[in-house]
Design a protein around this nucleic acid. Sequence first.
DNA 1: CCCACCCGGATTGTCTACAATCCCTTTCAC
DNA 2: GTGAAAGGGATTGTAGACAATCCGGGTGGG
Lengths: 246, 246
Amino acid sequence: MKPSPARPRGAPAPEERIHRSIADAIADRRLPPGTRLVEEQLAELFGVSRARIRKVLLMLAQSRLVTLERNRGAMVAVPSAREAREVFHARRLIEEEIVRLLTAEGGGLAPDAAQRLRRHLDREAAALASGDRAATVRLTGEFHQLLATVSGHAVFGEILDSLIRQSSLAIAVFETPAAPSCTADEHRMIVEALERGDGDGARRLLLDHLHEIEQRLELKTLGDGAVDLRRVFAGDAAAEALAEEA
Amino acid sequence: MKPSPARPRGAPAPEERIHRSIADAIADRRLPPGTRLVEEQLAELFGVSRARIRKVLLMLAQSRLVTLERNRGAMVAVPSAREAREVFHARRLIEEEIVRLLTAEGGGLAPDAAQRLRRHLDREAAALASGDRAATVRLTGEFHQLLATVSGHAVFGEILDSLIRQSSLAIAVFETPAAPSCTADEHRMIVEALERGDGDGARRLLLDHLHEIEQRLELKTLGDGAVDLRRVFAGDAAAEALAEEA
DNA sequence: CCCACCCGGATTGTCTACAATCCCTTTCAC
DNA sequence: GTGAAAGGGATTGTAGACAATCCGGGTGGG
């Protein structure tokens, strides 16, 4: 299947740039869940007509990063707890299979794959050391995407791209305030296991890693409608958003 | 995450109807892979402006059912052999997990789930008996989607919806002419295994079923660029499309 | 005869104007 | 004071017009 959406032949259409900008802003939490995305404002900001903005918003909506409500406009999506759990579940399934693919031949990583992963780890470490939080968060997500890329399985890569972006949203909504920050060593240990061909080890590390990310989120087991009244009346803004949803 | 794209509040926008019509026509092979989809013609046919058609085509493109090429228009996607293999691989992974979910409690299917699946089997059998090939093909695909629906895992359902539609395209391109038709008993046996709580059995049957579907396709192991010259010069239209792609 | 260039038609890309919808505020009636 | 209705402003939805692009066919030159 050909890449979609439309690929420009000459100068790239601004849609791609705009799409990237908005998606990155969502991932970096500069556009938090629930943020109104007004077409006219975005059109002015990006210096294009509204039609282009609508196109980008439609694409973002299909990726579940944005919700479009007819006659009421677009906003950054607010995932429910259930959705968050399902997204992480799907991630575990897909990413485990990707790691299986990477070690399918019984050997370790191909040298170019290992190199790309190593370079990425270096970039992660540099961002962390420089205190660039947004870059750190983005690179952390991109590590998982890179696993799919080097696996060469494009369909898994596309599915995972969407899942990673959705899980970033879930993290923005549900992350507990006092959660410890992610350690950079986890990715490194996964790469090391892959390099020495330890597929089982890599899978275990990966699943633990994803499980730990998910554990940091307050995903109530009661389901979507459950409301923690203590948090509602404590004036917590995120819980207020949840109360509105319920 | 809220359902996307935009949901109408009053009368439904025609986009949903048009989207369904085109997607169904693709699934039924009334619109074969490679078919040009001209905006103006579709606009006239559906009695709407071009803007609406463009919206639908963009959505179909993001689902990989249609390819958009800038300044050249839209056409029904033509999957490569590699893509087809990856789609089936992803299907096996997702559908196996769905069946695992359905039998996760160690018991059989919930009664309402069993009922829905049984009713669907009846509809499949009726379509087959009446010789309605298009309905049979569609219902056969919907069986798999229904497994996801009754599992209650919406994210898997969405991923699978897309994969099923893409695999239909792959089947349209790669199916061997003399392939035996799918037997209706395979779905029944899967449902029976689910009903008696035989998760392992159900999974094996399902994977065998999917494997059999994939085996019917001539997916060359050489990769995307491989061209079967015999088929090219035999004047086979599908192979000609592939030659153009390579 | 072959190749390069040009033109015309078909189609896509984009923008803008106007209609439709929704929400919030104000006013009026009870 | 409360609730309902009306109005206005903000925003979205939609269509049509025009610009831009591409491809195929025809013509002219070597």
